[in-house]
Design a protein around this nucleic acid. Structure first.
Length: 501
DNA sequence: GTAGGGTTAG
């Protein structure tokens, strides 16, 4: 118990461990337990990992093509001395998730080392990186390599299909399905549903339909299959076909369930066609299919968005009388929409009275909605009261989103010195929240506009140090500012960063 | 990834 507590404490104050903790907390703890002087051992390991990562990052940053990257890593003394580990690879893939050439170069180099085999999960991560960057040919090569090593899982297939369809190459996704047996997996209802869902989610519903008609001769559909189509038709606003699918579903002996109905209700909600929504609620009742909290949340959210607040409240009442318990997401949705409509006191009432009365605990999002609403309406002190309440609650912790509206308020009200410093200090030292790209951007832009470009530049350097790549606009803005202040050295450094973007 | 939310402009 003691060691876990210490590891958590230590991890929270170490940037390097925090990155590890997110992904690999258990194994990090397990490693710590092996050694008597855990803290110093752990620290050493982290430093080692950071040094190795830095060497590799520096190497690949100088190269421009994939081949050049590989070449620079091979036959290099510094690289040869690196102890490869799964943690190191995970860290580098995360670092280069937006730079497929560097990621692939390092991944290939690592997998060609005799002393090391990347985990199947890191192959999937590499697949994701290539897919996100639309490098579909490279993705196919990697998939083939995975096939040779028997590393393909259903998860891999799901990622590959979604990436192909996402890139508009739906035929390739179908080809993957056709080749499933060759890849060592089965063609069954589950994998068919995966293909159909992937196509439907990207609006290739008609194509999915064609394929289904072909496949259903060999593979039996189930209720999921029909719900996937109902969702697909609703997504492309062809609600008639969704209704027709419900009939087809019944024909196959599958009863439409709460998901089937809720999906169609969502579609009518988006059209703000509330007459049809109520009709469907009645039909559900007639079919002995009770709406659940998701159904009610959908309707309530849509009504509130349409500024029909009294009606939204009646849904809350209807839900209560149906014996359906509201959950946190339901109330968050309610609070959010009330806030957007400027009904600050109503939102406050829901948060302070309705939720506790119903025995529903708020989460970080509930507090964040309240804070953002108060800041938006220039009621900063009420926002800080909520933050205090959150800190005292012990139920949940603030995150970056908690602080964004508060930071924005500092800039709006010009309290850049006292208040902003306190906020950042709390963020980093009290709650151990790592600043992310959006926070750095917000801060640097705000500080430039507040004529505090020295401070902005410090943050810029810190951001680079952490391996966070700034946006072009941020560099541009800061560059103009430092030039005006005759900070030539800073300007040069920024220009170096910009050249790499 | 069979369904419900997320102040876009710093």
């Amino acid at each position: 118990m003691q060691s876990i507590y210490r590891a958590i404490l230590w991890g929270s104050s170490c940037i390097c461990c925090k990155a590890l903790a997110r992904r690999n907390f258990c194994s990090a703890l397990a490693s710590c337990d092996r050694v008597g002087t855990r803290d110093s051992w752990h620290k050493e390991q982290c430093q080692d990992l950071k040094n190795s990562a830095d060497i590799l990052i520096a190497k690949v940053s100088k190269a421009s093509s994939e081949e050049e990257i590989l070449e620079s890593l091979f036959n290099d003394q510094a690289c040869d001395g690196i102890h490869l580990s799964q943690n190191l690879i995970d860290r580098l893939l995360d670092r280069f998730k937006d730079d497929w050439k560097s990621a692939l170069g390092i991944f290939k180099w690592a997998s060609l080392q005799s002393s090391f085999r990347p985990s199947p999960e890191s192959y999937d991560t590499m697949i994701d990186i290539l897919g996100r960057m639309k490098q579909m040919e490279k993705l196919k090569d990697l998939l083939e390599e995975m096939h040779q090593g028997s590393l393909i899982t259903l998860n891999t297939i799901a990622k590959v299909m979604r990436r192909f369809v996402g890139a508009g190459q739906w035929e390739d996704a179908v080809r993957i399905f056709d080749d499933l047996q060759t890849l060592g997996l089965e063609k069954n209802t589950e994998t068919m549903n995966l293909l159909l869902d992937t196509l439907c989610k990207e609006q290739f519903v008609e194509q999915a339909r064609e394929i289904y008609l072909e496949l259903k001769q060999h593979i039996a559909p189930n209720a999921h299959t029909f719900n996937i189509f109902i969702h697909g038709w609703c997504k492309i606003r062809r609600v008639d076909e969704a209704h027709w699918t419900v009939q087809e579903m019944k024909g196959h002996g599958c009863r439409p369930c709460v998901i089937s109905y809720s999906t169609i209700i969502q579609c009518y909600c988006e059209e703000q066609n509330f007459d049809r929504v109520y009709e469907l609620l009645d039909e559900m009742q007639a079919q002995d299919c009770s709406p659940n909290v998701i159904t009610f949340t959908t309707i309530m959210h849509a009504l509130a968005k349409a500024e029909k607040f009294e009606e939204a409240l009646r849904i809350v009442e209807r839900m209560r009388s149906a014996g359906c318990r509201a959950d946190t997401l339901f109330y968050n949705s309610f609070i959010y929409t009330l806030g957007r409509a400027g009904r600050v006191d109503d939102a406050s009432y829901v948060f302070k009275v309705a939720m506790p009365t119903a025995g529903v605990a708020p989460n970080t999002s509930s507090y964040n909605s309240m804070i953002s609403m108060f800041c938006h309406h220039a009621q900063e002190s009420r926002a800080f009261d909520i933050l205090k309440e959150m800190e005292d609650s012990g139920l949940c912790k603030p995150d970056v989103q908690t602080y964004h509206p508060l930071i924005k308020s500092c800039f709006k009200t010009g309290k850049t010195d006292s208040l902003l410093k306190d906020i950042l200090n709390d963020m980093v030292n009290k709650h151990h929240i790592g600043l992310d790209i959006s926070t750095y951007t917000l801060l640097i832009h705000g500080l430039c506009r507040a004529d505090r470009c020295k401070w902005a530049h410090c943050l810029f350097e810190e951001m680079i140090e952490q391996g966070i790549v700034p946006r072009y606009r941020t560099c541009r803005l800061l560059l103009d500012e430092v030039k005006q202040k005759n900070m030539y050295e800073a300007a040069e450094k920024i220009e170096v960063v910009m050249k790499k973007l």
